[in-house]
Design a binder for these strands. Structure first.
Lengths: 128, 128
DNA sequence: AACACACCTGCACACCTGTGCAGACTTGAA
DNA sequence: TTCAAGTCTGCACAGGTGTGCAGGTGTGTT
């Protein structure tokens, strides 16, 4: 049986314009911790550089830092910096192979987002 | 016939570690303008406050500012500020009804994202 | 050994962003 | 008109973020 989602006591003294709507809204928000987790995920995709890197990894699989810099046009230090953030956030994995480090996607939820995004008009999704 | 996605001339002098991977990566990135558009969309969802508001609107439909403040626990000025950003970004619509302003979702792409997010474990999606 | 390559880190800078406060505006009621 | 409710705006502050530069680490080559 689902919870009632009443207004928390500490702000129950405020009057609602539409009590039913407020209840639905609270249900829609759900667990605040989950909201924070997703907000952090979205924040990772909110930078054009990082989003380009993730799209590149989604399409090309494990890729070296220099190749990512070459594909995106970013400087290698910027790529490295972005990948460090993505790595500590759990979005990507790093595999060392000699003096080359190849990165690949890790978070399945992010993969799903990239998949949906790649199915969007404007993406170059067809193979030659 | 899809484009070749060769490395742009201005950085063609750099040698690639894996030429084929670089080519795939460039294909995966696609149109840079589209990447920027999506990054901006994700940026809107990257704040817990804004994400809560959008989830609330997705679930409850058109909702007044005060009710959103009540449901999220945010101050009304913070809600207003967030909604102003969402409005100028094209994510939500504002309908005036007397002295009440009801907001509702506008961008279909964002609606799709919220739909996918709501189908995720941890969300309170069942009706009583 | 010395060297070149691929990658990483620390630091400083400019920039952006979310927040609260105080106040103003619009609307409806008395 | 006077008042209150609902919402909006401007301002200033603290904190976070992306970027470039200079230099460092580790690895393979000669």
């Amino acid at each position: 049986m689902p919870p009632m989602h009443l207004v928390p006591p500490q702000r129950a003294h405020q009057r609602a314009i539409d009590e039913h709507t407020v209840c639905d809204a609270i249900e829609g928000i759900g667990d605040p911790q989950r909201v924070r987790t997703w907000a952090e995920r979205f924040a990772l995709l909110a930078d054009p550089g990082r989003l380009s890197l993730l799209l590149a990894l989604y399409r090309a699989g494990p890729t070296a830092v220099s190749d990512l810099a070459l594909a995106t046009g970013m400087r290698d230090t910027a790529v490295s910096q972005a990948l460090r953030l993505l790595r500590t956030s759990g979005a990507v994995w790093a595999d060392r192979d000699g003096r080359v480090v190849r990165y690949r996607l890790r978070d399945p939820e992010i993969v799903e987002l990239l998949k949906a995004l790649s199915a969007t008009p404007g993406s170059a999704s067809a193979h030659a």
